[in-house]
């Protein structure tokens, strides 16, 4: 007898039963996300610390993202500056260009562009890597050898993204401003000193704090989503693809929500 015939198929259940099951599943999912996040804070402070793995992941997240981020940031700086010029020119205000670029890049584009690139590059690779480790039972193998796979895999990766995304954000901001400077220099013949003086005059302490908080939040989110999706990926090669894909989609979605929330909070602070 084929044991799979023992399985009750969903068709045999009543529709009410199916709906209640679906709700159960949503609540179970919410609970497991909550527990997964909580476990991070329970484990991050206690030994053993996997320093070697953390360093390796920092390298993976930070250094490996540099080429893509450099090119993107530089081009965004140039394009944004170039496209903003006509509207300022209409008011005869092209001298405000450095201030405009500065506010846009430091407040919004730097953190956001970094987070989106990292969601695509880092989030998907974490999702796929942990997903395939789950599918090929490597995570189980760690567990039976009495090594905490959560600490080794999840804590190290989430720490790496939480440290490295803010660092990358600073770098992105700088490179994008450099792109902006080149464009301004070419068209308005502004010197680098004047440009950066205007850039720094335009931003406030609050801007820098807000961007830092945001990028830490983005980093944590990207790492956590990738790890959650990969760590809990379903069995089968299909599960790996799904984990990688939904890591990217979910991380980007959450990043935008967080961006909105932080913006509201910062505006409220600015108003008082």
């Amino acid at each position: 007898m084929d044991p799979s015939t023992n399985k009750k198929t969903p068709e045999t259940s009543t529709s009410k039963y199916v709906i209640s099951r679906r709700f159960d599943r949503i609540f179970l999912e919410i609970h497991s996300i909550y527990a997964f996040n909580l476990r991070f804070f329970k484990e991050v402070f206690f030994p053993p610390y996997e320093f070697k793995e953390i360093i390796k992941q920092c390298y993976e997240v930070g250094v490996r993202s540099l080429p893509l981020i450099s090119v993107t940031a530089f081009i965004i700086g140039i394009v944004f500056t170039n496209q903003s010029r006509p509207s300022l020119r209409d008011f005869g205000a092209t001298s405000l260009l450095p201030a405009l670029i500065s506010v846009a890049i430091v407040r919004a584009m730097g953190p956001l562009v970094t987070a989106i690139i990292a969601s695509g590059r880092v989030g998907s690779s974490i999702g796929a890597e942990l997903g395939s480790m789950r599918v090929t039972e490597q995570i189980d193998a760690m567990e039976v050898s009495a090594t905490n796979p959560y600490k080794f895999l999840v804590v190290s990766r989430v720490l790496a993204t939480t440290f490295m995304i803010p660092a990358l954000t600073m770098y992105t901001t700088f490179v994008a401003l450099l792109g902006g400077y080149l464009n301004v220099h070419q068209n308005e013949l502004t010197t680098i000193t004047t440009f950066f003086t205007q850039v720094f005059d335009a931003i406030t302490f609050l801007d820098i704090i807000a961007s830092s908080v945001k990028s830490v939040l983005f980093g944590f989110t990207i790492g956590m989503v990738g790890c959650y999706k990969g760590y809990n990926s379903s069995k089968g090669t299909e599960g790996v693809g799904k984990a990688a894909n939904s890591s990217v989609v979910t991380a980007m979605f959450l990043v935008f929500i967080e961006e909105l929330l932080v913006m509201q909070v910062v505006n409220a602070i600015r108003a008082v």
């Binding site: 395939s132 480790m133 090929t136 039972e137 490597q138 189980d140 193998a141 039976v144 050898s145």
Partner: peptide
């Protein structure tokens, strides 16, 4: 307890 997995489960 040593556990040898069906598909080896080496850390790749």
């Amino acid at each position: 307890i040593g556990f040898s997995f069906q598909n080896s489960a080496l850390y790749d």
